[in-house]
Design a protein around this nucleic acid. Structure first.
Length: 422
RNA sequence: GGAGAAAUGCCAGAGUGGUCGAAUGGACUGGUCUUGAAAACCAGCGUACCGCAAGGUACCGGGGGUUCGAAUCCCUCUUUCUCCGCCA
């Protein structure tokens, strides 16, 4: 959520910024500001009325104590009208607040100045490329064929137990998965991220805190009996641990990591390109989250990008880094970098990581603040990234490290897998 | 799942209808004292919103109600604790 203060003061630059998303914010913001103005007027009237009422009540109290019941009862008569007026004003104020909030929730984050205007992934900018696509002297197989052939993943079994998009990993497939999780967690720990095991189910407040609600209501699995949501990413519990936090000074830097399953309904997604591991309802991920002073946000983002690059390099995967254009950047993000690995077998780029800065967009809802040098509370910046998501990395390793003799496991994983080939 | 108890500021903990945004102690911040520290003493010490300001409003787990007036009474929800049952 954007800060109302910023909308009041900086309306034009927000409207301009959101144009990069092809989001026309002008009418929403104009409505917002006009409601906001009315809200302030009515709110001020309501508070004045409340003040008068409080004053009278106080007087009544004093009169009763002094034994002047008659005078007290006389004043009582005056309160009825004030009470009615206050109730009336309160109703209006609350209605305005609801209208304001409704519009606030519609406004996406303003893209960072580096982000270019654009509509879709076509307009994303490639900012870096590392390595060359793997050359094969045979026809490489896509991972779903490899996984079946080598008995690493059973998609049908998952369908039987649950449904499509819930694969069962078997034997070396399961172990490779576990090895990757271990590797990612150790690397994150070495980079200073504190490991956490968090709940995989969250309440509604947490969903709002990180912005999955109300925007992505239908994308999360909801447990009706208990009104809880299955997490779509570890970001939700990890970031929400700090909901409502107030750091006592500006000297803080929170670096969190955790491995969680992620559950996504993927309602409305196309079925065409969802074969194998490319799109699942449940997958594992190691997430990194940072809570930073605004002035440290940019550096933190770069550190996270370097971290992800390091992981991909250690896995021997060639990759490219894209800075998403306005239209492709997620609702809550100010800037997002995607990492993609090319799959020769599928002849396409697979998105394996997404690293974003949110500036204060999440912390407004989270009420995540610090005391600045002037002893004023100020909003923190939040960032997060996948480091990394398992299925597509698994797919990339199987596809890009395949030989006619089998799959070559990258050196960095040997101590976690205990085997060097599949 | 059954029975009972509780939820107050950073922490502990008072407060059962009226100058209570809330005693007291601790912690913390500043000061005095000290070569320095400790101790002692003095002062300060919640958050949010509206307002140029003065100031005002709201908040004692959440929501609702009674009342001129609610931390205090009533209803409801949530959470925590204890005991019993069940169980990894």
């Amino acid at each position: 959520m954007l800060e109302i203060q910023r909308i009041r003061n900086d309306k034009n630059s927000i409207i301009e910024g959101l144009k990069k998303r092809h989001f026309n914010a002008e009418s929403i913001i104009d409505e917002l500001l006009s409601i906001d103005e009315k809200w302030r007027i009515y709110k001020s009237q309501m508070e004045t009325t409340a003040s008068e009422l409080n004053q009278l009540s106080k007087e009544i109290g004093i009169l009763f104590r002094e034994g002047k019941a008659d005078e007290a009862n006389a004043i009582k008569g005056q309160t009825a009208e004030l009470k009615a007026r206050e109730a009336d004003l309160k109703e209006k104020v609350e209605a305005f607040e609801a209208q304001i909030q409704e519009r606030m929730y519609q406004l996406p984050n303003v893209p960072n100045e580096l982000v270019k205007a654009g509509k879709s992934e076509e307009d994303n900018e490639m900012v870096e490329a590392h390595g060359e696509p793997v050359q094969f002297n045979f026809t490489p197989l896509p991972h779903w064929e490899l996984a079946t052939k080598l008995n690493l993943i059973d998609f049908e079994l998952g369908v039987k137990i649950t449904g499509a998009g819930f694969p069962v990993y078997i034997g070396k497939g399961a172990k490779l998965q576990r090895a990757l999780i271990g590797f990612f967690l150790e690397e994150a720990a070495a980079a200073g991220y504190a490991e956490h095991q968090v709940p995989h189910v969250v309440n509604e407040t947490s969903g709002y805190g990180t912005g999955q609600l109300p925007d992505k209501e239908g994308q999360m699995y909801h447990i009706g009996d208990d009104d809880l949501y299955l997490i779509p990413t570890g970001e939700v519990p990890l970031t929400n641990m700090y909901r409502g936090a107030m750091f006592p000074d500006d000297n803080f830097s929170i670096k969190l990591t955790g491995h969680t399953p992620c559950f996504r309904r993927e309602a409305g997604s196309y079925g065409a390109h969802v074969r194998g591991l490319n799109r699942l309802h449940q997958f594992d991920k190691v997430e990194i989250v940072r809570i930073e002073h605004p002035s440290n946000s940019e550096r933190a983002l770069n550190e996270m990008l370097d971290h992800v690059k390091g992981l991909l390099q250690k896995l021997g995967l060639q990759y490219r880094v894209l800075r998403l254009c306005g239209g492709d950047t997620g609702f809550a993000a100010a800037m997002t970098y995607d990492f993609e690995v090319f799959s020769a077998a599928q002849e396409k780029w697979l998105e394996v990581s997404s690293v974003s800065r949110f500036d204060t967009f999440q912390s407004t809802r989270l009420k995540l603040r610090f005391k600045n040098a002037d002893k004023k509370s100020q909003l923190c910046h939040t960032l997060n990234g996948s480091a990394l998501a398992l299925p597509r990395i698994m797919a990339a390793i199987l596809e890009n490290h395949q030989t006619e003799e089998g799959i070559i496991i990258p050196n960095a994983l040997h101590k976690y897998t205990g085997f060097k080939t599949i």
